[in-house]
Simulated scan of single mutants.
Amino acid sequence: MHTAAPRLTPRQSALVAAWLPGAELVHDHSWGITGTSVLRFRHAGRYVVVKAGDDADTHIARELRAHRRWLGPWRGRVPGLLHADDDAKLLVTRYLPGVLVEGRPAESAPDTYRQAGRLLALLHAQSATVDDGYETRMRERALGHLDGPHRIATGTEERLRAEIASWPEAPATLVPTHGDWQPRNWLVHDGVVAAIDLGRADLRPAPTDLCRLAVQQFRGRPDLERAFLEGYGGDPRDPAAWRRELLREAISTAVWAHRVGDERFERQGRRMVADALAGTGR
Results as ranks from 00 to 15, higher is better:
R244D: 10
T129N: 03
W31P: 01
C211A: 14
G261W: 10
P110I: 04
R226G: 04
V215D: 08
R282L: 04
S37H: 14
R40T: 15
V101E: 03
H178A: 00
P149S: 14
P176T: 07
R271V: 09
L81A: 06
D275M: 02
R7I: 06
K51T: 15
G22W: 13
W74C: 00
A109F: 07
Q216A: 11
Y134N: 03
A56C: 10
R139M: 06
R94Y: 05
R237D: 10
D180A: 00
G98A: 02
V26K: 09
Q217K: 13
R69D: 12
D223Q: 13
L246K: 00
P236F: 10
V193P: 02
R159S: 12
A61Y: 12
I33D: 15
G233P: 00
A172C: 05
A241Y: 06
R159W: 09
R270N: 14
A61C: 06
E158I: 12
D87H: 13
P110E: 01
T208F: 15
P6A: 09
R94P: 03
A170P: 07
D238C: 03
V101M: 01
R184V: 07
T3A: 13
D209H: 04
T58K: 15
W256T: 12
P176E: 02
A17W: 02
G117D: 04
D85I: 01
T93Q: 06
S37V: 10
T154N: 02
A195D: 10
H178D: 02
G179E: 09
P176K: 05
V130N: 03
F228G: 01
Y113E: 05
S37K: 11
L90N: 05
A278L: 01
R69H: 13
R237T: 12
D209G: 00
L277S: 05
A66N: 13
W181N: 06
L119F: 07
H83Q: 10
E266G: 03
P73E: 08
A121R: 15
I60W: 05
A125R: 11
A227P: 06
R62S: 15
L213N: 04
G179I: 09
V188H: 03
A276S: 06
F265P: 04
Q268C: 00
R219Q: 15
D238M: 04
R226N: 07
L39C: 12
A162S: 13
D147Y: 02
I196C: 00
W31A: 09
D85F: 01
V192H: 12
A274T: 11
L246A: 01
R137D: 09
H150M: 07
R94H: 12
E102C: 03
L229G: 08
R204H: 14
P205H: 08
G231S: 00
W242K: 10
D202H: 12
H27C: 06
A14L: 04
R68A: 15
T3D: 14
V78E: 01
R141T: 13
